[in-house]
Design a protein around this nucleic acid. Structure first.
Lengths: 233, 233
DNA sequence: ATCCAAAATTGATACACGATTGATCTACAT
DNA sequence: ATGTAGATCAATCGTGTATCAATTTTGGAT
């Protein structure tokens, strides 16, 4: 399959602006530069920019008033902006890799009440890559009953392999949910996003075959490297 | 590729593309390369490719816009039926299909307590095929709030397509669990397994974006024809 | 300071042009 | 019926230019 990322230019511009809105770089009420200036700084023609602005207007994200300017109309809660979009896999192949930032013994995470039979466990923080680029930061909690056999370096690759080879655990059930969360303060500077900005977040809890919950994770994805595609209707 | 049982080339191409969609290699909204380029890199004629694209359009997976391009119109969670596990035939090849055995209005299933806001719903029983061979029997429960729009014949293909095209439902959360279960007594004689024998079974509950649980399913797989591949984490 | 008209700014609309891309059709071979 | 090859038509895209309409700003008169 050939090159996938070749959307029409005006659609690329539209998604660029939408990402700016979702990321908070364009806030509600803000007036964009004049179309002519905007187009020239973007290196595109005015007509092309206008197509992009028109699609934003149709999505309710922009007010265009003649003689005055283009005004961002994004509702205050960023969740409604995200509701218009869909989180998708990054383009290109390559196996997902990860770099372990820290492995600590610590108390149970109150943010994950569904997880954990023990009062304490191990907390692993990882930086995840897709196609060689930083894509997400991740916090993984392993149940206390299993953590004594953990060795640093086991977690560079697949967690699944770690479970099976090192712990002998069969994951029989998992639950994922998608939400929004603020980037944690321990995120490394490589993560290309300003702190405090809402990010797409996936919460996962996994159970072993005997019913114990053995693992939970919180993952924040960089909206720049993952791809948002406008949802139909 | 001319052995007797092989499909026409354009159908093979169509299935290839559908698998790319299901696997997430082709994302919703993505524009395919121009037909001429696509055909040449695939080593086929444009007309053949166009037949494949036409069948994708009829399935609702593709938007063809003259002068613009071919755009994927599919949510990538077609494969998320196995969010935790990927089901693949050992020998590979062939798209999953299904034959509806029955569609009934009935009471809530006590075996699926987590599912269903309504007291009743629809129960669909399907026989599923992989590579033309019987692979699983399946029982699907749709919540009563959504079932009034069900029409027989909608469910022959992908359930995902049904959700998107008929109900406009966006599945935001799903839970899969794997266990063992006895083959139900309503399984047709085509299912190649003696009754009463434990089979690998997947239970799935899906929630819509507003929190309603809209679907639940119980699927019994023939262990002879399928294999489970753990998901890379 | 207030009011008002001219000037500047900004978006809206229209048209033209070349390049790209899908649609349609014919012809031919297996 | 399937697959290939080629020619031609039609729609879209991106660009460029010109003109009109609505708004804002400016500056002078009072």
């Amino acid at each position: 399959m050939a090159h996938p990322g070749s959307l029409p230019l005006y659609q690329q511009i539209a998604e660029l602006l939408i990402r700016d809105i979702a990321a908070g770089r364009l806030i509600d009420g803000e007036r964009l530069p004049p179309e002519r200036d905007m187009a020239s700084t973007m290196g595109i023609a005015v007509g092309t920019l206008r197509q992009a602005l028109k699609s934003l207007t149709e999505k309710g994200l922009l007010d265009r008033v003649q003689g005055s300017g283009n005004y961002i109309r994004a509702k205050a809660d960023a969740a409604s902006v995200y509701a218009l979009f869909r989180l998708e896999r990054v383009e290109g192949g390559g196996l997902p890799t990860a770099r372990v930032l820290s492995v600590d013994r610590c108390a149970k995470n109150p943010a994950l009440p569904a997880f954990g039979a023990s009062a304490e466990g191990h907390r692993i923080r990882r930086l995840r890559f897709l196609s060689g680029r930083v894509a997400a930061v991740e916090e993984i909690w392993l149940d206390g009953a299993e953590v004594d056999r953990i060795a640093q370096g086991d977690l560079l690759e697949s967690l699944y392999l770690f479970y099976r080879q090192r712990l002998g655990i069969w994951i029989s059930r998992a639950e994922d949910s998608i939400s929004q969360g603020a980037l944690p303060d321990w995120a490394p500077p490589e993560f290309p996003h300003p702190y405090g900005t809402p990010l797409p977040q996936i919460t996962r809890v996994s159970w072993a075959q005997d019913g114990r919950s053995v693992e939970a994770s919180l993952t924040w994805y960089d909206p720049e490297t993952v791809r948002y595609v406008a949802r139909l209707k």
